[in-house]
Write a protein that binds this DNA or RNA. Structure first.
Length: 856
RNA sequence: GCGAAAGUGGCGGAAUUGGCAGACGCGCCAGACUUAGGAUCUGGUACCGAAAGGUGUGGGGGUUCGAGUCCCCCCUUUCGCACCA
């Protein structure tokens, strides 16, 4: 052992050792309890960034903690290796996406190993390899069989000048990002997964994870699904056998409806206007609205409501009243039914609209107080204040001007009126969702091909399971035509129909990469299975994931897709639960100042504010880098990068190293070794150290359970400080001192392992233990246990307040009685000087905590 | 505009159920060792004050023996959603 701490030597040594001994590989048949610790798999862009380092440092700390506690810890990693950047590299520089991706993986794997993250590398997976995406295709076929995957025409962004499909990001502002031409919507056949079938479950099952996922994530998921309870109402169309279906959450306000307003692009409008003189005007209006919608919503800009009266009349099925049908820009085709009943008196938007176009405003809900509800709601007859309304009254209340329904409370009327509509056949209670089906078609090369063959005779035909995987060709030409590059690869496209044997063309769309990441952590459990995506028995042993860690940028997309996928797998009989992840941690971003500004933004190449993890590891060591990143802020906070802090981490590690070095000779001498049973009286210094040791164990253990890693590190630093405060010197220490020092040092080293595994291994070895930290369990090795007796304080320092102000302190035994404490406080000299000449009104004694003397 | 979360030293941040505000670290100051110090070690470091003491957790009010913590109003910041009927 060197006198000095050379991280590069230690880290290399242990990384090699771990690799050779396959230290972190786990087996399926291990009697110990399992723990599945998962971090979000990275896209192999080529370089690890600080966000990754933070993510994996958190995960690795937890994995080590659980291992030392005796769990069989599955801690895998893989590559989300399909996707845009590889294809961009191909388009721009003509490189082969596969070669580019593989090179990146090699480099990043090296970086992760230099960081010393304890992954089971034998389970590494990569989405772009056929043995993985074969199962994406398999799942697709399973969903296709069950009607969960389907094809339909759907609008995409289309640049007419370049003849290419653009993503939403590439067409922001309604203009092509390259040539600036106005982007059109064009209908293309696209594949969808019917996630909407699971909308209800995606909301309801959040109950299972309510306390173990961040509230924020659950809320965003619920909002994303957008469940809304209400009713359908069919408004008959005058002089027609057609009707317009509207969705409303406030059927109780229906007597106040003074118009029906439809989305301009509602298909029914064209039918209803056939032969009308207003047809072209309405169509023109629809075009104008469609054009405006394409523009980005200016931040803070007030949307201006515009509408057009179609001349059609609709009949309110409750009142029989005829009301005009309008089209307006504020009604959206893709929510609800694309038509609403306009109730200006009780909806802000309708109110605004009615004011602009002078539509009648009719109040049908009157405010009601709690007292009135308790008494007799029927007796409440609010008066119609319509004329005086300055804005809509949107609250619940009691119905007025509503025929036979008058006098009922909103809550009651909502239920009864929906039932009435159903009985009469013009509507009924309904639930709508904002969630749309998941469009997975990408006109791209670098993704898993959709396993479908298009036959002129048979239509879309599933590729037979035995023909999977549908392999991506080596290479394609990247023409930028907007079609998938696969369409230009003749040997890929031209095939035979699996059904009739006739000539057919393969589907050239590939799947969204979120498909790959929806189920990858199940594959880790059984990564080399050639017969199935995984063996359900093996998966059952490991899943659900005990702790998932990643950035909150995936709060809706990835995390809702993977919940959906799990439910589908459950329905396929592959897993037995509905929620794949027990606990979720969304870690904060790592930000850095953007040069020349005051802004803190996520590190990125384009902003030039990135810090290279490799440089940091080289300069300070992986252990220090990890310790620093975990200590600098709570894991869920944003972490603002600052260069100076890391030196503190190196300093701490160096000091621990030096301290062990000072003691190790005597501690490891078998002749001088002192066992607990041989120790007599502990000196006061040894007692204090032991107390601190056990308090620290309790604190760190508790902090780990809540992933409060920053305070864990602080506790370890405190224990170290106590160790250096001990007067005893290695050469002269008494047996009791030796025992206390060894206990403290060993505990410190063990608890340091999750933060700095290399140095912990090194010091553990130097403290005389062979086989490494993960050698088969021995009492000396497992995560230390706090002894409550020792952790308890011997003597308490009780603060004494006079009128709530701290005036003195007295020492007391932990089991001091209330009366004794009170007496001691009143007898204290300092206290007496404050209470002299005053009347003591009250003495508040909080056992073991404090005394407050109230005087007048 | 709506919704949510958060405001604690020069900085990152600590603080079981309401009970010693500022743990731990960074930075800074002083000293020691040293040819040297951007190394290391020791001590100090919320603010005002010579001290006694006073003030202090975004601002204002309240509850309480006692409030960073609970309640009300306001301000600021961050994030999310933006016509969802």
């Amino acid at each position: 052992m060197n006198e000095k701490y050379f991280p590069e030597v230690i880290e290399k040594k242990w990384q090699q050792q771990w690799q050779e001994s396959r230290a972190f590989e786990v087996s399926d048949d291990d009697p110990r309890p399992k723990f599945y610790c998962l971090e979000m798999l990275p896209y192999p862009s080529g370089y690890l960034h600080m966000g990754h380092v933070r993510n994996y440092s958190i995960g690795d700390a937890l994995a080590w903690y659980k291992r030392l506690q005796g769990f069989n810890v599955l801690h895998p990693i893989g590559w989300d290796s399909f996707g845009q950047p590889a294809e961009q590299a191909a388009i721009k520089r003509g490189v082969n996406p596969r070669a580019w991706t593989e090179e990146n993986i090699v480099h990043m794997r090296g970086q992760l190993q230099r960081l010393g993250v304890s992954y089971d590398w034998s389970r590494e997976i990569a989405a772009h390899r056929p043995d993985y995406y074969k199962w994406d295709q398999w799942f697709f076929l399973k969903m296709y069989e069950r009607g969960l995957a389907y094809k339909r025409l759907s609008p995409v962004n289309w640049c007419p000048r370049e003849g290419t499909v653009l993503s939403n990001e590439q067409s922001s502002g309604g203009l092509c990002w390259r040539c600036g031409a106005a982007v059109e919507k064009r209908d293309l056949e696209q594949w969808f997964l019917r996630i909407t079938n699971y909308a209800e479950q995606l909301v309801a099952d959040t109950a299972d994870i309510e306390n173990t996922w961040p509230e924020k994530v659950i809320k965003r998921q619920r909002d994303w699904v957008g469940r809304s309870e209400g009713a359908y109402v069919d408004f008959g169309v005058k002089d027609s056998n057609k009707s317009i279906r509207a969705f409303t959450t406030r059927i109780d306000t229906i007597y106040g409806a003074t118009a029906v307003v439809m989305a301009p692009d509602h298909p029914l409008i064209r039918e209803l206007l056939a032969g009308s003189a207003l047809k072209t005007d309405v169509e023109k209006f629809a075009e104008k609205v469609a054009a405006e919608r394409k523009r980005p919503a200016d931040a803070g800009a007030e949307e201006i409501k515009e509408g057009f009266n179609t001349g059609i009349l609709a009949i309110n099925p409750f009142s029989g009243e005829s009301i005009p049908v309008w089209v307006a820009n504020y009604v959206l085709m893709d929510y609800g039914t694309g038509a609403v009943m306009s109730v200006p008196a009780h909806d802000e938007r309708d109110f605004e609209f009615a004011q602009k176009y002078s539509l009648p405003i009719r109040q049908v809900i009157a405010p009601v107080t709690h007292d009135q509800i308790a008494a007799e709601p029927q007796s409440v007859t609010g008066t119609d204040q319509s004329a005086e309304m300055h804005h809509a009254f949107v609250e619940y209340g009691v119905l007025i001007n509503s025929g036979e329904w008058g006098g009922k409370l909103s809550a009651v009327a909502i239920k009864e009126m929906a039932e009435h509509a159903e009985t009469k056949g013009f509507g009924g209670g309904a639930v709508t969702y904002r969630l749309r089906d998941w469009g997975i078609s990408r006109q791209r090369f670098w993704g898993a091909p959709v396993p479908i063959v298009n036959c002129e005779k048979c239509g879309s035909v599933a590729v037979p399971y035995e023909d999977l995987p549908v392999l991506l060709p080596e290479m394609a030409e990247f023409t930028g035509s907007g079609e998938s590059p696969l369409a230009g690869v003749a040997e890929f496209v031209n095939t035979k129909c699996p059904k009739c044997g006739g000539p057919a063309r393969r589907e050239t769309d590939t799947m969204d990469t979120f498909v790959d990441s929806s189920w990858y952590f199940f594959r880790y459990c059984d990564p080399r299975n050639e017969a199935a995506p995984f063996n359900s028995e093996i998966v059952k042993q490991w899943t659900p994931v005990d702790q998932y860690i990643g950035g909150d940028s995936h709060a809706v997309l990835h995390l809702i897709y993977t919940r959906f996928w799990t439910k589908v797998m459950r329905d396929l009989g592959l897993v037995s639960f509905s929620e794949p992840v027990k606990k979720l941690l969304t870690q904060g971003m790592v930000t850095n100042r953007v040069e020349g500004t005051d802004e803190w933004k996520a590190m990125s190449k384009s902003l030039g504010n990135g810090v290279d993890p490799d440089e940091m590891i080289e300069a300070f060591g992986a252990d220090a880098a990890r310790l620093f990143i975990l200590f600098a802020a709570p894991v869920e906070n944003e972490l603002r990068w600052n260069e100076t802090g890391i030196e503190g981490a190196v300093r701490f590690l160096r000091k621990v190293y030096t301290l062990v070095w000072r003691w190790q000779e005597r501690l490891t001498d078998p002749v001088q070794r002192v066992e607990a049973s041989q120790v007599g009286e502990f000196s006061s210094g040894a007692r204090a150290l032991r107390r601190k040791t056990h308090q620290t164990i309790a604190r760190v253990t508790n902090d780990f359970e809540h992933l409060h890693l920053n305070t864990s590190v602080a506790a370890l630093m405190e224990l170290f400080n106590e160790l250096t405060d001990l007067d005893a010197q290695p050469a002269t220490a008494s047996p009791s001192d030796m025992f206390a020092v060894r206990e403290a040092l060993e505990s410190l080293v063990l608890m340091l392992a999750p933060f700095g595994p290399h140095i912990a291994e090194e010091l553990w070895e130097k403290l005389g233990h062979s086989g490494g930290l993960l050698a088969p369990a021995t009492p000396a090795r497992a995560w230390p246990q706090a002894d409550a007796e020792w952790a308890r304080k011997e003597e308490l320092e009780i603060p004494i307040q006079v009128n709530g102000r701290l005036r003195s302190r007295v020492m007391a035994a932990p089991d001091v009685s209330e009366e004794d404490l009170r007496a001691a406080a009143l007898a204290d000299e300092k206290v007496r000087s404050f209470i002299e000449g005053h009347e003591v009104v009250k003495v508040v004694v909080v056992p073991r905590r404090l005394v407050n003397i109230v005087i007048r």
